[in-house]
C-alpha cells in the first residue's frame, strides 16, 4: 500500500504559484532577502503613484517611497496574512503620506516659511495654462479625504472595497466621498468651463 502525504491548501498554492505576494512574504520571513527585492520591484510603481496622488508633489515621491519600503522591510516579519499584501502596503503608503503632510504643516507653523513646493499640485502657472494643469490644480484644492479616494479610483483604478481598506473606512463612505469629490471638482473648475470645453 502506498501512502501519500496529504497536502494543505497553502502548500498547493506554494507549488503552483511561488511568485505570488504571500509566497514572497513567506520566503522573506524564512530569511530569503531576494523575495523582498521582488516585492519592491513589483509594487514600487503603485506605491509611487499613490504618494503622488496623495501629496501631488513629484519631488517628494521617491523619498516617501523609500521610507515606505523601509517600514515594510522592518515590519514584514509581523505580517499576519489576514489581508492582501497590497492592501497592507498601500495602507502604509497612505499613512506615510499623512505623516509627511502633518510634518510639513508643523514645520511651516514653527519656521514661518511657506513651503510652496510642499503644497500638493500647486505648480500651475496661469500664464502657460492648459487643461491638465487646471484640473490638477482643481484636484489639489480638494480636501485630502475626498481627493485620495477619487484618485485611487480614477487614476489607480482600485475598487471601492480596496479603497475602503486602504483609507480605513466603510464602503458606503468611499462611494459618498468619491461623488462629493467629483461634485467639488466640478464647482472648482466652473470658472474654467470655457477652456475645458474647448
Amino acid at each position: 500500500m502506498k501512502f501519500t502525504k496529504k497536502k494543505t491548501g497553502l502548500e498547493n498554492l506554494k507549488i503552483l504559484n511561488l511568485d505570488d505576494d504571500f509566497s514572497l512574504v513567506k520566503r522573506f520571513i524564512e530569511e530569503d532577502e531576494s523575495a523582498f527585492e521582488t516585492l519592491v520591484r513589483r509594487h514600487k510603481d503603485k506605491v509611487r503613484n499613490i504618494i503622488f496622488i496623495t501629496l501631488g508633489n513629484a519631488n517628494t515621491v521617491d523619498d516617501i517611497a523609500q521610507e515606505v519600503f523601509l517600514t515594510v522591510y522592518k515590519n514584514l516579519k509581523s505580517f499576519r496574512f489576514e489581508s492582501q499584501f497590497t492592501t497592507w502596503l498601500f495602507r502604509i503608503t497612505v499613512n506615510k503620506c499623512k505623516d509627511h503632510l502633518r510634518k510639513v504643516k508643523i514645520r511651516s507653523v514653527i519656521s514661518f516659511f511657506k513651503e510652496d513646493e510642499e503644497e500638493p499640485g500647486y505648480h500651475l502657472s496661469y500664464e502657460n495654462i492648459n487643461t491638465a494643469e487646471i484640473v490638477q490644480k482643481g484636484i489639489a484644492k480638494l480636501p485630502e479625504k475626498l481627493r485620495v479616494p477619487l484618485l485611487l479610483k480614477d487614476i489607480e483604478g482600485m475598487s471601492y472595497q480596496e479603497i475602503a481598506e486602504i483609507v480605513k473606512c466603510e464602503l458606503g463612505t468611499v462611494k459618498s466621498r468619491i461623488f462629493r469629490a467629483r461634485e467639488g471638482l466640478k464647482n472648482i473648475l466652473e470658472p474654467y468651463r470655457q477652456e475645458l470645453m474647448s
Binding site: 496622488i53 487643461t131 491638465a132 484640473v135 490638477q136 484636484i139 480614477d154 471638482l185
Partner: peptide, 8 residues
C-alpha cells in the same frame, strides 16, 4: 478630465 489630466 481627472483621468486624462493626471500623469504620474
Amino acid at each position: 478630465l481627472t483621468k486624462s489630466s493626471f500623469k504620474i
